[in-house]
């Protein structure tokens, strides 16, 4: 099986994966040269929805995509609850479990406006700490429908949600931020369930951190990349077989076209969103009709932000982190 072109491809066959062999070197095997890199490298933005985006990296080695992916997941900072002071907890959820849950609540605060808190510091300052209070008491609901058996009608504050966080500004923080800019991103995260007599009285300290230390500091829900799938139909497939071929791929990948003499013929519409399942190879008569491949220097990046920073900012931060790392290492090399 052969695809005659100059793109570096991996070809997905029934039981094995092969590669096509372009006559010249590709980004996968040539010497790295910054001028060549600048000439070949292209970025195409496909989708941008503030907290979610998709873009293509074209003409680069996948190692670069992987570096940026790793940086976004574990080295781009965000704010999260790190310390919980428990003054009172008479609910049934244990202190340590509750604290862990509180740590995982995503916060809106922009990490770029904060500093890292040093390990020796006993007291947090307005530059590195956000303080919250969670003071909730569950009681019987005296008013309302007496007949109702719903917990929400019988009790008050029986569910503790992230909206119960109250922000306590440190020093001049109240002038710098608004409460809705630093608090939880979602106000309906269930933290604990209580019954009358149960009470929570906590103080929470949120600091800036990175995903390498704890996943709660990761600014992305997911950041991943994949290679661009490419599907070629190499002989005509018509009629019932064409419909079967269409069903072998993700919706929208194969479309059916009516030819002049009234036959239904399968054509490739858009192979970008194919899952690359090898369902075609289940049919003896379709096996030889398609070549499934992936283009190795065309990378599709997807970033989904948790909500504190927009997706594009997370990406640019990742690139800046790598740059600063390299610069400080160069600095150290020239000193020694």
């Amino acid at each position: 099986m052969d695809v005659n072109d100059e793109k570096p491809r991996i070809i997905l066959e029934e039981y094995k994966v092969t590669q096509n062999l372009p006559s010249e070197t590709t980004v996968l095997d040539e010497t790295f040269d910054i001028r060549k890199f600048k000439k070949k490298f292209r970025i195409v933005i496909v989708r941008y929805e503030k907290y979610e985006m998709e873009f293509d990296f074209i003409g680069v080695h996948p190692f670069l995509a992987n570096t940026f992916r790793r940086l976004m997941l574990s080295e781009v900072p965000s704010m999260a609850v790190e310390k919980v002071f428990i003054y009172n907890n008479t609910s049934i959820i244990q202190d340590e479990i509750l604290s862990h849950r509180l740590g995982l609540v995503p916060l809106k605060a922009n990490p770029r406006l904060f500093e890292y808190r040093s390990e020796e510091a006993k007291e947090g300052s307005e530059q590195d700490t956000l303080e919250f209070e969670l003071k909730v008491k569950c009681t019987w609901n005296k008013e309302g429908n007496k007949e109702s058996a719903r917990a929400d009608d019988i009790y008050k504050n029986n569910n503790v949600y992230s909206k119960h966080f109250t922000w306590l500004p440190i020093k001049n923080q109240a002038e710098m931020f608004k409460a809705e800019e630093v608090g939880p991103i979602h106000d309906d995260i269930l933290l604990a369930k209580m019954r009358p007599g149960h009470e929570l009285d906590l103080k929470l300290l949120a600091v800036k951190g990175i995903g390498k230390d704890h996943a709660k500091f990761s600014p992305v829900a997911t950041a991943f990349y994949r290679l661009l799938p490419d599907i070629k139909i190499i002989r005509e497939v018509e009629g019932e077989a064409a419909e079967r071929l269409q069903k072998c791929f993700s919706p929208g990948v194969i479309s059916l076209r009516h030819s002049k003499d009234g036959r239904k013929v399968a054509v490739v519409n858009n192979s970008r969103y194919d899952t690359s399942s090898r369902n075609v190879y289940r049919y003896e008569d379709l096996k030889d009709a398609v070549i499934m491949s992936k283009i190795q220097d065309h990378i599709i990046f997807t970033i989904e932000s948790v909500g504190a920073m927009t997706a594009d900012v997370i990406f640019t931060e990742a690139v800046k982190i790598l740059k600063n790392k390299c610069l400080s290492l160069l600095d150290e090399l020239s000193q020694s």
């Binding site: 910054i34 600048k38 390299c326």
Partner: peptide, 15 residues
């Protein structure tokens, strides 16, 4: 390291 710094600069500009 120098190449990597240039890669970062170019990526930022392009993006």
């Amino acid at each position: 390291l120098e190449d990597l710094v240039n890669v970062c600069d170019h990526t930022l500009d392009l993006f």
